[in-house]
Nucleic acid binder design. Structure first.
Length: 268
DNA sequence: AGCTCATGGCGAG
DNA sequence: TCGCCCTGAGCTG
């Protein structure tokens, strides 16, 4: 269950393991059998991520993978074992293998179709050279809440439920503020914080957002591990005391997703 | 064994 | 806004 940092790691991992060499491609489960046959034995030329979309380039044909809510990659060294369960896509060479399960998308795209995917995605804080200006144009004109806008992949690509909750907490911004009520300075701060947090996420392979001064050790509290594997302020911490002010973290359903925030630290 | 939930997104209405 | 798709983990019984 991935946000953008996971996909960028997957692009790098695929490139390291398979890049520049022929790769065996199959679909043990069978649901991607025809596509797999078309690229089986070809050379992986490039691997790229845009938001939560992964693109693997096989000379004019692009394998497009989107993990959705449940998709998962598993990498291994050496020979691939007998597939267990539902493996949609398997890529393998003599060094190792990668198994993909449960993706929302696993398909071959033409360059034109790939370009269309990019066109409908907003700027990605993890893509080199991208700026948040295009996102700001949409946000500053929208009456939708900033919480919903941050999750909208047309506005901004790669941010999911964890990063949106955490960046709003870190900047003390209420998730219910309409986008058009944000100042340019506030947006610039959000973008800069996302760039920093998500690059940390790529490096660490998990989402950590708690500043050093608010860690349990610094606050004189018992150590704590969030069940999704990172240290965060509000994500999935509903009814637990805010790490900064002690007020119970609140939750609410917004556009069919859980939103988390601190009603005291995020009033403005 | 059978729920329920999850870091997502699409299309129908 | 709702229902639906994909899969697995973590409960409850």
């Amino acid at each position: 269950m991935p946000e953008g940092h996971v996909i960028h790691r997957l692009a790098r991992r695929n490139d390291e393991l398979f890049g520049g060499r022929p790769v065996r491609v199959s679909s043990p489960q069978g649901r991607f059998a025809e596509g797999a046959a078309l690229i089986d034995g070809r050379v992986l030329e490039e691997a790229e991520a845009h938001g939560k979309h992964l693109f693997l380039g096989f000379g004019g044909q692009w394998l497009h993978v989107h993990l959705g809510l449940y998709g998962k990659y598993e990498f291994g060294a050496g020979g691939a074992p007998e597939p267990v369960g539902q493996v949609r896509l398997r890529m393998a060479n003599d060094s190792g293998y990668a198994d993909l399960r449960g993706p929302t998308a696993c398909e071959l795209l033409t360059p034109g179709e790939k370009a269309a995917v990019h066109r409908r995605l907003g700027p990605d804080p993890l893509r080199p050279g991208e700026a948040g200006d295009e996102a700001w144009r949409r946000i500053s004109r929208s009456g939708t809440t900033v919480a919903a806008l941050l999750m909208d992949q047309k506005v901004l690509a790669g941010v999911g439920n964890v990063y949106r909750a955490e960046v709003l907490f870190r900047l003390g911004i209420s998730p219910h503020r309409p986008g058009r009520d944000l100042s340019r300075a506030e947006w610039d701060a959000i973008w800069a914080d996302l760039v920093a947090l998500m690059h940390d996420g790529v490096a660490a392979g998990r989402i950590d957002t708690v500043r050093p001064e608010h860690t349990p050790e610094a606050m004189g509290r018992p150590p704590r591990v969030d069940d999704h594997g990172g240290e965060v302020y509000v994500y999935r911490r509903h009814d637990q005391p805010c790490l900064v002010c002690g007020t119970p973290v609140r939750t609410e359903e917004l556009a069919a997703r859980n939103l988390f925030w601190c009603p005291r630290c995020q009033q403005s």
